[in-house]
């Protein structure tokens, strides 16, 4: 019977295409649509703030250089992930991330909570030549970042586009975007105060790349790296324990294999 039915639909191209669309749509609709309607999908975090213009510009540098290809920003609910990188990531922490940068590969370590773990100077030295500070590293060097001045004249447009798709930037933030980018990297300037006024006292004002005469892409990227994991405290307040690695009883065997492989 089924075979006879199929004999029929394979005689009509349009019917066949409609059947393909019907069969292929079910999974996506059932898995994706509820993520927008079920409230528990994204936790509440009243202290969550969007990126400052400088951090957003740094995030764009991070994307442009393809950092996501080797660094995840998603600490899993596994005990060893938590012990290594900090509390596991919550959905709310990437709520304003268009797109998310959870990543899929750790050629380098996870960066979800890298903010504040190293000094600005360490980051600048590491990005300029990773092997100066980590001799065994295979990360590329990014010496051009400190040499390239950051484009700020269009940062208002960037914020406006984000506002359009739901990131809570105010019109005041948009109007002051270029000024705030400058102010965040120039602690002694008149612009610095405005950044904390608009983005909260936690926003870090620093001469990120150590040079205050010019705003560079290095300033932006370091500002971004230093804010990762610090936009909200929600993950630290979350008390649900992480999961054990599923085969914990095999750890002894595992460690033997790992040492043998070295």
């Amino acid at each position: 019977m089924a075979e006879l039915f199929h004999r029929k639909i394979e005689r009509t191209a349009i019917g066949f295409v409609l059947a393909i669309i019907a069969a292929a749509s079910v999974g996506g609709i059932i898995e994706i649509a509820p993520l927008f309607t079920i409230d528990e999908t994204v936790e509440e975090a009243p202290d969550m703030r969007p990126y400052t213009p400088l951090e957003l510009a740094g995030r764009n540098v991070y994307m442009r250089e393809g950092c996501y290809a080797c660094h995840s920003q998603m600490i899993r609910t596994l005990r060893d992930d938590v012990d290594r990188y900090g509390p596991y990531s919550l959905a709310v922490e990437s709520r304003y991330d268009h797109p998310m940068l959870w990543g899929s590969k750790r050629t380098g370590p996870d960066l979800a909570r890298i903010g504040g773990k190293y000094s600005d100077i360490w980051h600048v030295a590491h990005l300029t030549n990773p092997r100066d500070v980590v001799p065994q590293s295979n990360m590329p060097s990014y010496p051009w970042l400190a040499r390239t001045s950051l484009r700020t004249d269009d940062l208002g447009l960037h914020l406006a586009a984000q506002q359009l798709i739901g990131v809570p930037y105010t019109d005041e933030m948009i109007a002051n975007a270029a000024r705030d980018a400058l102010g965040q990297a120039l602690p002694d300037s008149d612009y610095a105060a405005g950044v904390q006024e608009r983005y909260g006292d936690e926003a870090q004002i620093s001469a990120f790349d150590g040079v205050t005469t010019e705003l560079t892409e290095m300033d932006a990227l370091v500002a971004y790296l230093q804010v990762l994991g610090t936009l909200t405290d929600a993950a630290y307040e979350n008390t649900v324990a992480p999961e054990e690695a599923p085969d914990a009883e095999d750890l002894a065997a595992g460690s033997a294999t790992a040492s043998g492989g070295r």
Binding site: G28, V42, M100, L157, H158, I165, G166
Partner: peptide
Amino acid sequence: AIPVSLGHAWSYPIWSGVQDAMVQWW
């Protein structure tokens, strides 16, 4: 996605965070 402007190559996907992750891997 929403382009920064019609004169910009750069754009921002309309999806974010966990929904973006699901759409991306779907």
